[in-house]
């Protein structure tokens, strides 16, 4: 178990190093940082100072080394566009995206898991069929179409929710949160639902298929033969078996949400990492793009790691003997 843990952590570190190298190559080969960062009337001394600060006078591998070391110490480099520290820019945008991802995961869990259970336990009822039909829309309609439709109905037509922004935010140290105000919650509902629509569909279908399969297994028949109530059979004996693939999915999807909230954020003008990324792409702000890449990679890997390490809690067969 411990050996397995160490192995997986090392794998994660290795992959992150590879991603960092790709990102670093982006920074070091695309564009001319001196031309972008220095004013046209810069002196030679200013120029040399910037070269030394950016380590441009050193060999490639050594620059990569100091790049990685810098990241580890919280120095993410300078934005070409704003000349701000990239770390600070990301830190400023991070809360909005994390809260968006969190609320959309919450919506998924609260809506999709019960719906999936219903569709798996009673696949033939009218409600189940309706859920399955509607859930097809979640897969087939692109995110931005759903977002725009929601805005059209709930913001423009009904006027229940704002169509853009985070509402009123509250500062908690370095973290700005919209989850403590009514207007913040109103603002987050539509984008979070839009972001959740795709994974809700997946969770519903996954749970349904898994439950229908588990429902036909011998151990469920045996549980019935012992007189256990239908409620217990489904909600304790069957669910536990259907949960493992669903949790895997949800974990992977959480990575996806953070990584690819770009579209949703731009539809709702959500001031998060996704819209920062879009702005950076538009102005060829390579350092921000590169750091965003590394950041998304790291989040993805860490969530995967956490999901995998949580398996033994759900399925005892995956516990490795520690002896």
């Amino acid at each position: 178990m411990i050996l397995h843990f160490v192995e997986r952590v090392l794998q994660t570190i290795l992959v992150l190093l590879v991603i960092s190298f790709v990102a670093f190559m982006l920074i070091s080969t695309l564009g001319d940082p001196l031309g972008v960062l220095l004013p046209p009337d810069a002196t030679i001394a200013e120029r040399n100072a910037l070269i030394a600060r950016l380590n441009l006078d050193q060999p490639l591998l050594q620059r990569f080394w100091s790049f990685v070391m810098g990241i580890l110490q919280g120095d993410f480099g300078l934005s070409y566009r704003t000349q701000q520290d990239v770390g600070a820019m990301i830190a400023e945008r991070l809360p909005a995206t994390v809260e968006l991802a969190f609320v959309s995961l919450l919506i998924t869990i609260v809506l999709a898991i019960p719906a999936g259970i219903l569709c798996g336990v009673k696949p033939k009822t009218l409600v189940s069929r309706a859920i399955m039909l509607v859930s097809i829309a979640g897969i087939t309609l692109p995110n931005f179409v759903i977002g725009i439709l929601l805005i059209a109905v709930f913001s423009v037509h009904l006027g229940w929710f704002p169509s853009f922004g985070r509402g009123t935010v509250v500062e908690l140290g370095n973290w700005t949160t919209g989850l403590l105000t009514v207007s913040g919650w109103q603002a987050i509902i539509l984008p979070a639902f839009t972001l959740a629509s795709f994974q809700m569909t997946f969770v519903i279908r996954m749970l349904r298929t898994q439950l229908m399969e588990v429902g036909h297994s011998e151990h469920i028949r045996f549980a019935r033969a012992r007189g256990l109530s239908e409620t217990r059979v489904w909600f304790v004996y069957a669910i536990r078996n259907a949960l493992l693939p669903t949790v895997t999915m949800l974990g992977l999807q959480l990575g996806n949400i953070i990584a690819f909230s770009v579209v949703t954020e731009s539809v709702f003008a959500w001031p998060g990492l996704g819209s920062l990324f879009l702005q950076s792409v538009q102005s060829a702000d390579i350092p921000v793009i590169a750091i965003y890449l590394i950041f998304v990679g790291a989040v993805y890997m860490l969530i995967n790691l956490a999901v995998e390490l949580s398996y033994p809690l759900i399925d005892p067969r995956l516990k490795r003997r520690s002896a």
Binding site: H219, F222, R224, A225, R226, G227, L228, Y237, R317
Partner: peptide
Amino acid sequence: HRVRGKRVGFIFQDPMTSLNPV
């Protein structure tokens, strides 16, 4: 439900599949 298990027990064939694995 009150008969199954309580009044009539049932022994299944395949011990590998008839116990809940989790």
